[in-house]
């Protein structure tokens, strides 16, 4: 009797890196662009210098959305440079932007786009080597740090509401409560960032189980909900935290569900169990979804 050896199978029980290829590229201090399903990471000598994703607003959007930088100035720099990162460096060199402001936007954009780029994907990533490593003045991030932050955001999303369907539910602008003024830093417009950015509205719908919309393409949206932010239609941004607000999710058929009333506070001492499959009370009710702030 011939005994055939078992076929090798991937051990899915062991924790794996977000992207084994990225880990290897970091170890070999590679320079180039890693293109994955939901975004791309630009590496220089194994460090992430720039990240882009269609699901997160880029550096240009962050800089020009509220007039920090004139859109024409960005376009001029972008035309003269190769890629947004070099355009930003041009702007820095020309003194059009303060270093601190640019670094802040750069890191915000990098971590947000990096989150999506490292989302689980159904297609293998591709890496294009670039022979000319060049480090610029803007800060770069170790691969390990980006992976760590991505995992932290995933965990926080899960804690906010364990059902992933709420992370991608379409959001509808809430009716602001009469006389309510959203607290939050000024000048931000409908800003909606970070875990719960895209999730908060759906989370706030309270027990979204019966009205979970069809899952749109894309990973769990834990970065900026850029489109909503830009168009000012994020319900989470448009309501004052800590106050009674009403939010809705849309059904796939376009009808709006009954609007549950969500109060922004939970009784003192009540802490939700993160692992509860469908808590009766909104788990993160005492905080608004991080990143969303009022207009």
């Amino acid at each position: 009797m011939v005994r055939t050896p078992p076929l090798p199978v991937r051990d899915t029980s062991a924790p794996r890196a977000l992207s084994p290829m990225l880990t290897r590229l970091a170890e070999e201090r590679a320079t180039g662009v890693l293109v994955r399903e939901y975004g791309a990471l630009h590496l220089v000598e194994g460090r992430v210098v720039y990240a882009e994703s269609p699901l997160a607003p880029g550096l240009d959007v962050l800089l020009t959305a509220h007039g920090t930088l004139a859109a024409a100035a960005w376009q001029r720099a972008a035309a003269a440079a190769e890629g947004p990162l070099h355009a930003a460096e041009l702007l820095l060199a020309s003194g059009l932007l303060p270093a601190g402001a640019l670094e802040l936007c750069h890191l915000d954009a990098l971590y947000d786009a990096g989150y999506f780029a490292l989302a689980p994907s159904s297609t293998p990533g591709r890496f294009r080597y670039d022979g000319a490593p060049r480090t610029g003045p803007l800060p770069s991030v170790p691969v390990v740090a980006l992976e760590h932050e991505t995992l932290r955001r995933r965990l926080q999303l899960h804690r906010l509401w364990p059902d992933p369907a709420t992370d991608t539910a379409p959001l509808i602008r809430a009716d602001p409560p009469p006389g309510a003024r959203a607290a939050g830093p000024r000048g931000s417009g409908a800003r909606c960032r970070w875990p719960g950015r895209a999730t908060g509205g759906a989370v706030a719908a309270g027990g979204a189980g019966s009205r979970v919309p069809a899952r749109p393409p894309g990973p769990r949206a834990a970065g900026r909900c850029g489109a909503r932010r830009r168009s000012g239609t994020c319900p989470v941004c448009c309501s004052a935290p800590g106050r009674s607000t009403r939010r809705r999710t849309a059904r796939p058929d376009g009808t709006a569900p009954a609007r549950p009333r969500v109060t922004g506070r939970r009784p003192a001492g009540v802490r939700p169990r993160a692992a509860a499959p469908r808590p009766r009370r909104r788990p993160a009710a005492r905080r608004r979804p991080p990143g969303c702030r009022g207009p």
């Binding site: 962050l62 800089l63 959305a65 509220h66 007039g67 920090t68 402001a101 802040l104 936007c105 915000d108 830093p185 000024r186 000048g187 931000s188 417009g189 800003r191 960032r193 900026r224 932010r229 990143g291 702030r293």
Partner: peptide, 9 residues
């Protein structure tokens, strides 16, 4: 708190 003209917190 750092008060910025761009989206940041």
């Amino acid at each position: 708190f750092v008060d910025t003209s761009f989206d940041s917190s």
